[in-house]
Amino acid sequence: MAGCEKLAGAFNLSIRGYDPGVTPIVAEYIKKPGKIAPPQEVALSLYIQHISKLSEMEMEITISFYLRLQWLDRRLKSKTNRPIRVPKGVLHCLWLPDIYFMEAKSTGEPEASVFHVDPDGKIIWSRLISLATRYENDLHVFPFDTLSTRVQLESYSYGNNTLTFKWLGYMYSPSLSSIDFKAHSAIHGISMKDYSRMSIDPEDSLFQIAWLELKLRRSPLIALISIYIPALMIVMASWLAFLLPDSETAAKLGIGITSLLSLITLTSYADSKLPKVSYFRGHDLFFGFSFAMMFSSCVVHVRRKFTILPRSSMLDQSKVSEMNCKLRIRSFSTVSVFVFSLLVFNIVYWPVVISMSQYASD
């Protein structure tokens, strides 16, 4: 401890008789016999600087933010008229709240740290932290889903009766409102919500937890351009086979099979950009309906191949013209059924997905 006193004295900081294992509020009440010390209050504030990584396959997000802790330690009062900046090498000599991040996959070493002590003993400890944690989102409503993650802080050794948290506020960088990620992971908006400022359940938890929830909304435009519109174009391209004569069955099936293979390739691309989940995602139903449409068109082409028609040599010219007219009408009516089915599906599908996404984000 003598070494700490000498080291702190070099920075005009007096810690004679200072016990770093005792909270500041307990140190005050030691001098007041018969009185019970209340919990030490530590104020928290966050400034979200940027999101450095978002991995959809691993459902992991990396957030860089400034964490500012404030508390009062009258044992560090000084006669100076300005704050004292304490170097990192002296911090082990002082009492510090042993805060850690819950459910974090990894927490990098603080990239920067500033420790100030005001003349009245008020301490401000600011650190730049990079936190990798898991996020949750409901892919039922893809591409209108909302990503949700929490920054949760808890004391490792001080319980509710020794240390409490208080939120001072939170901010985020304006640049977060225009983040663009690769593939269809664009974020076009950010909203953070502080639920009750603290999450405390004295009956079920011995340690107080302070948490802040961060919500990000996906931009549906990129998914529409890269997934849904190409799928619609492939389906409509398969209908070009209806313009061919019924005798060109091989060409019709060639168009149908090529369209099916193109849609399979597009489905594989979409699946490679999203995490593997045990439920139907928003685009799975869309692709399923598209496959059903193209398979049905192939069935129609094969059925027409085996339709028995009289030879044109056995009919006069008027009968041949009448038959060709009927075939064109039949082709037009078949295409109309496919177009109507696709139109009805989209009229029902998109409002349902959008309404579900609004319900899920609430």
Rank of each mutant, 00 (worst) to 15 (best):
E56C: 10
L54Y: 00
K215T: 05
V344F: 03
S278P: 10
L327M: 10
F295K: 10
L13I: 04
G89H: 14
D271R: 15
D362M: 14
V302N: 09
Y29M: 10
L168D: 10
I30R: 11
M294K: 07
T23F: 02
R330C: 01
K88N: 14
G169E: 02
R85C: 07
I255G: 00
L67C: 01
L212T: 11
S126H: 07
R127M: 09
L243M: 14
I329G: 04
S355G: 02
N12H: 14
T265E: 11
L274E: 15
T62D: 08
L260R: 08
E56A: 10
N137P: 01
L168V: 03
T334H: 04
L274R: 10
L232T: 11
L46M: 08
L54V: 04
I329K: 09
L91K: 05
M323C: 01
S177I: 01
A270N: 14
P87S: 06
Y66T: 05
I84K: 04
S157D: 12
M356Y: 01
K305Y: 12
I129T: 04
L67D: 03
L216K: 03
P83H: 02
S45H: 09
A27V: 01
Y29I: 11
S113N: 14
A104K: 14
L72Q: 12
E5C: 05
S333F: 04
E109R: 15
W167D: 13
S55T: 09
S331N: 10
S333T: 06
I225Y: 06
S157M: 07
D362Q: 13
G288M: 05
M102L: 15
D180R: 11
N12G: 04
P275S: 09
L96P: 06
L232S: 11
H116D: 14
F280Q: 15
S361W: 07
L221H: 04
L216Y: 00
V348C: 02
F181Q: 05
M102N: 15
G189W: 08
H301I: 04
P87T: 02
L147I: 08
M236T: 08
M1W: 09
K79L: 05
L216I: 08
F142D: 00
